[in-house]
């Protein structure tokens, strides 16, 4: 009996010390997602209206994101940031009566802004961005704002790069007990 109790205690202890492991997780055979030969849908940025302008309340659009042309395939800048080519197109947008629609990219902190260009008659424009996380905005400017450092007009549509979804794990998930404030959030 003593032996049995010892054995049971040993097994219980051993079980408690054993790290729980997962069953098989991942992509099952034959469940491939669609393979295309165009811009990856995964990185595409949805552009949503701010509903601030007449003629733009129903506007919607997207920015296709592909790596910029590079002899290395994977395009990186000298500081190691990804370099992307954005192909922006907006639907359901009334033509600008006074001024021009201009596309911009900006960092999440809004501390750096770069003009991509004015939308053409089909409300399309392309340009490159050299940040890993960024926002896309299209504004209504008095003119095409060539050479401008920032926008001055109202934002018509906006969107966020896929990487913009990244956030701290403090305060939730396996780190639920970690106070966000400790990490500056």
């Amino acid at each position: 009996m003593k032996r049995l109790l010892f054995l049971a205690a040993f097994l219980l202890t051993a079980g408690a010390l054993t790290l729980p492991v997962s069953p098989s997780v991942g992509s099952p055979a034959g469940s491939t997602c669609a393979v295309g030969d165009g811009p990856p849908r995964y990185y595409a940025i949805d552009l949503v209206t701010t509903r601030r302008l007449p003629g733009a309340r129903m506007a919607r659009g997207k920015a296709d994101v592909v790596f910029a042309r590079s002899p290395f395939g994977l395009a990186l800048s000298a500081d190691g940031s990804y370099v992307y080519e954005l192909l922006i197109s907006i639907d359901n947008l009334a033509p600008a009566r006074n001024g021009a629609y201009v596309a911009w990219v900006t960092t999440p902190q809004l501390d750096q802004r770069v003009r991509l260009g004015a939308l053409d008659a089909d409300h399309k424009v392309s340009g490159s961005v050299g940040w890993n996380k960024f926002l896309v905005v299209v504004t209504l400017e008095d003119d095409e704002a060539e050479g401008a450092q920032s926008w001055t007009g109202p934002v018509v549509v906006r969107g966020m790069s896929r990487s913009g979804l990244m956030h701290t794990q403090a305060g939730h998930g396996p780190f639920e007990a970690e106070p966000c404030a400790v990490y500056g959030y």
Binding site: V21, S22, P23, S24, V25, G26, S27, T32
Partner: peptide
């Protein structure tokens, strides 16, 4: 297609 499966990794 390039992908992966995992099995028996620690649950955390």
């Amino acid at each position: 297609e390039l992908t992966l499966r995992v099995k028996g990794l620690p649950l955390p």
